[in-house]
């Protein structure tokens, strides 16, 4: 269907329409957003998850508890102690990106450990995985890395019906402290329990003002229901919405990075936790929100120089999202529920 529709439109026509709708590409993201706003010397704060955790804790932004850090073979001996948590834990490379090298352990099982995907592994396998992390297999440029062992998030059931295994998270794009986009990222069977869009995760736009989910996409195409659970994706209320926006807005204050993706998970007991920051957040969020990034960024730029505090910036964010027009759907309807209600009688 999509193929034939694009086939009809000329390439130049597509290009112009996207330009008109303010859609930006990777080139523009790098040149206009990442490079001028994220000085390289600060990037270590987001590239190294241990650093992120440290600055976030310093500013009282809640993060998953750190059980231990493995820096070299000597730390390996303390491993059983670090892993002594009945509720499970997560092993991740400090400098990994795009979810690479993350190992989720459910808990001990018959002398070994049970992974989130149900497999039972021995201590040797875990040590091997940690060695891979230390040798830099998942880090940028292959440089030696640290392995973090941290609290495994018990995710809030609010997104239980629209997730398949794994942990859903909320990605907020923050420009100079003003949240400008939000998206709920849901794991699928295809994405192997990971919430990354390029692995087949589902992205659902979230209204900044209300925290209600909007339209959804997978593989850059609009969808209406979760591919595995078949549950409708629209109009789900994200809890703690104001807290989430505040955490996102304050991430700017603690890092100084002007254009970041803030990834937040909802824990059943601890509420929203800052999982990680991303200094080069992806641009698919435009599809999930059906908003070209340029229009909202231009509007936000009016407020970025005013040195507002985090609470004020959240207010600005809410007012901005109400004022931006969304790109209409192919069949002209505003929301999915309209179509559903029309079809009902």
């Amino acid at each position: 269907m999509a193929v034939s529709r694009v086939g009809e439109i000329t390439m130049l026509g597509t290009y112009r329409a996207l330009r008109r709708n303010g859609v930006i590409g990777i080139n523009e993201r790098n040149l206009r957003l990442v490079n001028p706003n994220n000085p390289r010397r600060l990037m270590n704060l987001v590239n190294d998850k241990l650093e992120t955790k440290r600055v976030a804790e310093f500013a009282d932004i809640p993060v998953p508890e750190l059980f231990g850090v493995v820096r070299d073979a000597r730390d390996m001996r303390k491993l059983p102690e670090m892993m002594d948590h009945a509720d499970g834990f997560v092993i991740k490379p400090a400098q990994g990106s795009q979810g690479k090298g993350i190992f989720v352990v459910d808990g001990p099982l018959k002398g070994g450990w049970r992974l989130a995907n149900g497999r039972r592994v021995s201590l040797d396998v875990i040590k091997f995985q940690i060695n891979n992390i230390l040798s830099g297999m998942y880090s940028l440029g292959g440089q030696p890395d640290k392995a973090l062992i941290e609290y495994r998030v018990k995710f809030d059931d609010v997104f239980g019906k629209v997730s398949f295994k794994g942990v859903p998270d909320i990605r907020v794009i923050v420009l100079k402290g003003i949240p400008v986009f939000a998206m709920l990222r849901l794991p699928t069977a295809e994405s192997d329990g990971k919430a990354n869009l390029h692995k087949g995760g589902v992205g659902v736009g979230v209204d900044l003002a209300t925290g209600l989910t909007l339209r959804a996409m997978q593989h850059d195409q609009m969808i209406e229901t979760h591919p595995d659970t078949a549950h409708p994706l629209e109009n789900i209320q994200a809890p703690y919405w104001d807290d989430i926006l505040m955490m996102a807005a304050r991430s700017y204050d603690v890092t100084g990075l002007g254009y970041i993706g803030v990834d937040i998970v909802l824990d059943r007991e601890k509420g929203p936790l800052l999982l990680e920051l991303n200094g080069r957040p992806g641009i698919s969020i435009q599809i999930a929100n059906r908003i070209g990034m340029r229009s909202i960024l231009d509007k936000a730029a009016h407020y970025t120089d005013k040195k507002l505090d985090a609470a004020k910036r959240v207010e600005v964010a809410k007012s901005l999202s109400a004022s931006v027009e969304k790109i209409p759907m192919a069949d002209g309807r505003e929301t999915l529920s309209e179509a559903t209600t029309q079809a009902a009688p």
């Binding site: 999509a2 709708n21 523009e28 209409p328 192919a330």
Partner: peptide, 16 residues
Amino acid sequence: TGLRLSELWRFRELAK
């Protein structure tokens, strides 16, 4: 800073 050819396909949903 313009779009890449592959991005025309990627953002086809937004080309209205």
